[in-house]
Computed example of a mutant assay.
Amino acid sequence: MSETRIRDRAVIIDQGFVVIQRWGIRIIVIAAALYVLGWAVGHTWVVWFPVALAILFATVLGPPAKALRDRGVPAAAAAGLVMLGFLAALGVLFSILIPQLVDEAPQIADRAAKGVGEVQDWLVNGPLPIESGQISNALNSVEDWLRDSAGDISSGVLSTIGVATNVIVNTVLILILTFLFIKDGHRFLPYVERLGGHRVGGHLRELLYRAWNTLGGFIRTQALVSFIDAVLIGVALALVGQPLWVPLAVITFIGGFIPIVGAFASGAIAVLVTLVTNSPQDALIILAVIIAVQQLEGNVLSPMLQGKSMNLHPAVVLMAVTAGGSMFGITGAFLAVPVTATVAEILRYANERIDTTLTTGGDPVAMTSTAPATASDPAAVEDEGGKQR
């Protein structure tokens, strides 16, 4: 007969505490590393801010530059033509829409503050009065903030790009970096692959390629979705006779680049301003339109245009925006989702390699990347003459 061995309970508990201790030390080390990384990024934000914006611009401008290169246009000329078109579009935007937004921003803030006051009066004195000091205090805080900010918004609308240093210096630096990224960015992945060597070069190339595609897809999709939202809401505002429909539509477009939070904030401003300038009925109409547009965006536009490329849960997006905004302000909220999507794509690739290793029994580092380097792939290796090999 086989003898049954009974393990002592104290040994099992002791082994459990050993595992907890081991993972506790790992978590502390990882948290310390993330803290040091955040500290370093915060103190060198003056460098990373223009680089990050230049990369975002390059993800949008890179495909047309590549299309020109495929038709035989030299890389420098293709980048120059794309940059000229980009600057022309910015010139039209700044000359037509932005001045109007800057001029009307104090009025929008003041009327939004009055709208908050009317909402507070309705909650207290309406058909279903609410006796809640917390609600009143919260609404009073929002109203005071909007009134205090009314004079500062017009001067601060264009100042977010100069958070770290002078606006002109940052703008010139961003434009130069964007041009260089468009001109020579297609040579970067082949260089990284050669630098990484046989074991890890292919993985680095594949990771960066996926991150680039995810980032570019997110920016292009958000721009298109935000534009559609701004057009639909702007038309609705114009139909109800809202005199500030153009700047409110611009605010809607800008807010669309900050998922969830931006749409909620810009929609709330549009409803509050309409409540003051028009009537409660018009405000309810705009609220219904905004809800319908958000449902169209969430259930039709984003899934159709973006598919599952992001694959981020709304809770993750909300936490990322909150964390980015808390640490780095408006720019952090804007960059939080692209950074989170890039990190998520890296984790997905690592998970794929682990699954491949479990099924094949191979070395996840030694295994080469399975993504082919094709003519449409920016990771396609080019020689000095620009020919693929």
Results as ranks from 00 to 15, higher is better:
Val11Met: 11
Val29Asn: 06
Ala33Ser: 13
Val36Asp: 05
Gly38Val: 07
Trp39Lys: 14
Val41Gln: 00
Gly62Thr: 01
Val73Arg: 02
Gly80Ala: 03
Gly80Glu: 00
Ala89Asn: 02
Phe94Cys: 03
Gln100Pro: 01
Leu101Lys: 02
Asp110Thr: 10
Ala112Lys: 01
Lys114Cys: 08
Val116Phe: 12
Leu123Arg: 08
Gly126Pro: 06
Ser136Ala: 14
Asn137Ile: 06
Ala138Phe: 15
Ala138Asp: 14
Asp144Phe: 08
Leu146Phe: 10
Ile153Thr: 04
Gly156Trp: 03
Leu177Gly: 00
Lys183His: 12
His186Thr: 07
Leu189Asn: 09
Arg194Pro: 09
Gly197Ser: 04
Arg199Asn: 12
Leu208Glu: 05
Leu215Gly: 07
Phe218Gly: 00
Leu232Ala: 12
Ile233Glu: 03
Ala249Gln: 06
Val250Phe: 04
Val250Lys: 02
Ile251Cys: 06
Gly255Met: 02
Ile260Val: 13
Ala268Leu: 13
Ile269Phe: 08
Asn278Ala: 15
Gln281Ser: 14
Ala283Met: 00
Leu287Tyr: 06
Ala292Arg: 09
Val293Gln: 11
Glu297Ser: 14
Gly298Gln: 05
Met304Gly: 13
Lys308Ser: 14
Lys308Arg: 14
Gly324Gln: 01
Gly325Phe: 04
Phe328Val: 02
Ile330Asp: 00
Phe334Ser: 01
Thr340Gln: 07
Thr340Lys: 04
Arg353Leu: 15
Leu358Asp: 09
Asp363Phe: 05
Met367Val: 05
Thr370Phe: 08
Ala373Tyr: 09
Ala375Arg: 14
Glu382Lys: 11
